[in-house]
Design a protein around this nucleic acid. Structure first.
Length: 361
DNA sequence: AGTTGCGCACCCC
DNA sequence: GGGGTGCGCAACT
């Protein structure tokens, strides 16, 4: 996996950048590692990618751009909260999210997968949060980290984030080209990084940050995925937008980022649609129900919780909300004026990806 | 020119 | 109020 030496350098660099209040992004990390240790940026990037996969480093989208976090630290925080909060279970839902996201970014919430994943250790086999929180102790992680050598690709972490960012990115773009680019990259970056690692992407090492740019397309994809939220984040100020998310493991087993997020979400999305359908029918069918009103998010959540999706998966309001939004955007679901969720008129078919793209566009 | 330090704005709890 | 993140700018090397 990653060379210990590089892991140390990279974590150290991330910490250093953080302490400087500078965004620990690929470009800065590569630059600093190169400056301090003379390491080749490409190599650094490759190692970083490995660390992301090992979840030693978390790739997150924050304020429309990609940032890298020292997983040990992040987790630590999370953990704290978690612990405080307690417990495991339920409470985790919200707390976790945030905690995980610790950044606070999650304003919107997650939007997407990230949230999901990060926050909740939902995933089943895959470890979204790789064990992180609860299981591994931070310290351990830090140094030993090998926490989860799950083959699963965690890289996703990034993905999720990315996705989001993408959405936001555009928005943000207005303000910062840079960020935008990066953000964009993010999504893709996941692959791109990966790819880069393996393949040569690079002409420019440092350019990592730029990478994103190239891949606007990817962004879009990702956006869709995650970005249900359309938020235009101008700079910091934008409230709405970007939330950072950490993604920890991807659920999907090793898929790549771009897809993984979607997959996850999609999965939940399908269940969500099914739940809505079911609830709708139920309502319709039973006059008993107080109203024919379509189910609301709460009800849907309740319904979903009764069904089981992925093993170990935890459904949180936020997560459901996010997926819900996404499905609404995709046209698979429709929100009534009263805030109830219903099935679209029909004929919509599943949302096509393209739709998302369009949307994002 | 590149780094570093940090005030300040934001966000979330 | 506390904790986190990161932009933007001044100071420094």
């Amino acid at each position: 996996m990653s060379e210990p030496k590089y892991r140390e350098w990279i974590l150290e660099t991330i910490d250093s950048l953080r302490s400087r209040k500078a965004r620990p992004d690929l470009e800065r990390i590569c630059r600093m590692v190169r400056r301090r240790h003379g390491s080749d940026p490409d190599k650094t990037r490759a190692e970083l990618e490995k660390l992301i996969q090992e979840q030693t480093v978390l790739k997150v989208s924050y304020k429309g751009s990609i940032s890298y976090r020292n997983a040990a630290k992040v987790q630590r925080k999370c953990r704290k909260k978690t612990e405080q909060t307690t417990g495991s279970g339920e409470s985790l839902g919200e707390h976790d999210k945030h905690s995980f996201s610790n950044n606070g970014d999650s304003a919107l919430s997650l939007t997407d997968q990230e949230e999901c994943e990060d926050k909740e250790p939902e995933d089943p086999g895959v470890s979204p949060c790789p064990g992180p929180l609860p299981q591994t102790s931070p310290s351990t992680l830090e140094k030993e980290d090998k926490m989860l050598p799950l083959p699963s690709g965690n890289s996703f972490i990034s993905c999720g984030a990315t996705g989001h960012s993408a959405g936001s990115v555009k928005a943000s773009a207005s303000r910062d080209k840079r960020s935008v680019a990066e953000a964009g990259a993010s999504g893709s970056s996941a692959h791109r990084d990966a790819s880069s690692a393996s393949g040569p992407e690079g002409d420019k090492p440092l350019a990592a940050g730029h990478e994103g740019r190239d891949e606007d397309e990817d962004d879009e994809k990702e956006e869709k995925t995650c970005s249900s939220v359309s938020s235009p984040p101008p700079r910091n100020k934008l409230p709405a937008s970007p939330k950072p998310k950490l993604k920890v493991g991807a659920k999907g087993a090793g898929a790549r980022c771009s897809e993984s997020p979607d997959e996850n979400c999609a999965d939940l999305g399908d269940r969500l649609v099914a739940a809505v359908r079911s609830l709708s029918e139920r309502h319709r069918g039973s006059a008993a129900t107080r109203s024919h009103a379509p189910p609301g998010p709460k009800e849907i959540l309740g319904f979903l919780s009764t069904q089981r999706g992925m093993p170990g998966e935890k459904l949180t309001r936020n997560r459901v909300k996010v997926v819900l939004e996404r499905e609404i955007e995709r046209g698979r679901l429709r929100r009534t004026r009263l805030g109830h969720i219903t099935l679209p008129a029909r004929g919509m078919g599943a949302a096509k990806p393209s739709a998302r793209l369009l949307k994002s566009a």
